[in-house]
Design a binder for these strands. Structure first.
Lengths: 142, 142
DNA sequence: ATAGATGCAAACTATTTGCATTCAA
DNA sequence: TTGAATGCAAATAGTTTGCATCTAT
């Protein structure tokens, strides 16, 4: 695991997850491994296309979906497909059901500040617990 | 503060923030105060339109923007305008610059589980520290 | 050989914008 | 009265889908 993995390493990682090791996938995954900036699909597309001009944006989206499903990559807080609003202003956090998108308020004891802060000035914290709500657990198999 | 506030209370809350107290805004804000389900703009639109058929979806979006700017409501983890991906799988969290959307990895000591869990099964936690990064602090006034 | 992946275009969803009209202050 | 807010329509951004072609296994 890591940004220095070679082609064969990455290819077998794909096959272990039932994914074919295509050049597009390898390039997209490699580009994501090589950066720390949490890029968007569009950013990866522009970057990978430089060395693979035939690449299409649709392939980037499909690839990111496959890699996420295989748990080789993660999507940042990508639970909501549309913005969700809250009129409750007291500090609180959320349980988010990744199946039905339900959001439930919870309170959490105060959080210790992160260590490696550098010059970053924190103005707020948002904690999301992801999982499955009672209704979804009750229903079909998860 | 709270879902039982009456019209005059809400209206003066708006004026205190320099917002005109229009019937649309009052209705949208009231609808958001009255629910715990963290609705989307579309959901609020459908709900409020039942008693105010002339309401437009555009007004709902503009109103939510105004209320958020006035800090009367919050938007759930609404930092990214597009999905952002990460190939780092070790548990970690993020500093998110709300100005330039930069995302920086951080590690945080283990989090205590929330108290009021009920039937919810937690599969993961994501902590987002919101604020301003060094580059943005250095630049123009915040 | 063949299931699955790609590329392209069209479709779709969420959101924003422009502008004429209306309204709260 | 007047600047801000509304409603409507058109525009945009991000993402998904359908389908013919191609390719890794």
């Amino acid at each position: 695991m890591g940004p220095t993995a070679d082609r064969a390493e990455l290819a077998s990682r794909f096959r272990a997850h039932g994914l074919k090791a295509t050049p597009q996938r390898l390039a997209i995954y490699r580009a994501l491994l090589q950066t720390f900036e949490h890029p968007s699909a569009e950013t990866l597309f522009r970057r990978v296309r430089r060395t693979m001009p035939s690449l299409s944006l649709g392939t980037v989206y499909k690839t990111l979906d496959s890699l996420e499903a295989a748990q080789l990559i993660t999507r940042l807080s990508g639970v909501e497909e549309s913005a969700r609003y809250d009129a409750k202003l007291e500090p609180h956090h959320h349980l988010i059901c990744t199946r039905c998108k339900k959001v439930i308020d919870v309170t959490v004891p105060d959080l210790p500040a992160p260590a490696q802060l550098g010059a970053f000035e924190i103005t707020g914290v948002h904690v999301q617990f992801l999982g499955h709500c009672g209704d979804c657990l009750k229903g079909e198999r998860i």
